[in-house]
């Protein structure tokens, strides 16, 4: 995934490789124990997770305080529980962090 925006400006444009072989469940959040750590106060400690379900990439919101949102080409729609995400989807975590889930 690549950071489109986040309060830590130096992370913008930076890429984080997601390897499901290494981590079948990619946890995303503010605490250091997550696979993807996002230093953003508006992101929950354990915010969301990505998993591969067969060939489907699934995104699940973990009842985060400020929500997880999937861009539908027009607006960011809140993710309730779990949704399938396609390559190149744009996802917002909380209010200030946006990532793009790049290919493969």
């Amino acid at each position: 995934m690549v950071f489109v925006n986040t309060p830590a400006q130096s992370l913008i444009k930076s890429k984080v490789p997601i390897e499901f072989d290494d981590f079948p469940l990619v946890s995303i959040g503010r605490s250091p124990e997550n696979v993807v750590v996002i230093p953003d106060q508006e992101v929950s400690r354990k915010h969301a997770e990505l998993t591969m379900n067969g060939t489907k990439l699934m995104l699940k919101d973990l009842n985060s305080k400020n929500g997880t949102f999937l861009y539908n080409g027009k607006e960011f729609q809140q993710v309730h529980d779990s949704v399938e995400v396609k390559p190149n989807s744009i996802v917002k975590f909380g209010t200030g962090t946006i990532v793009r889930l790049t290919g493969e």
């Binding site: 489109v4 925006n5 444009k13 861009y71 960011f76 209010t95």
Partner: peptide, 21 residues
């Protein structure tokens, strides 16, 4: 508005309503 070369088109910015990347 702000530039973001890893995206295509315009997407809503976290700065608030009416602002885009």
């Amino acid at each position: 508005n702000d530039p973001r070369d890893m995206i295509e088109g315009f997407i809503p910015s976290v700065r608030g309503d009416g602002a885009y990347y």
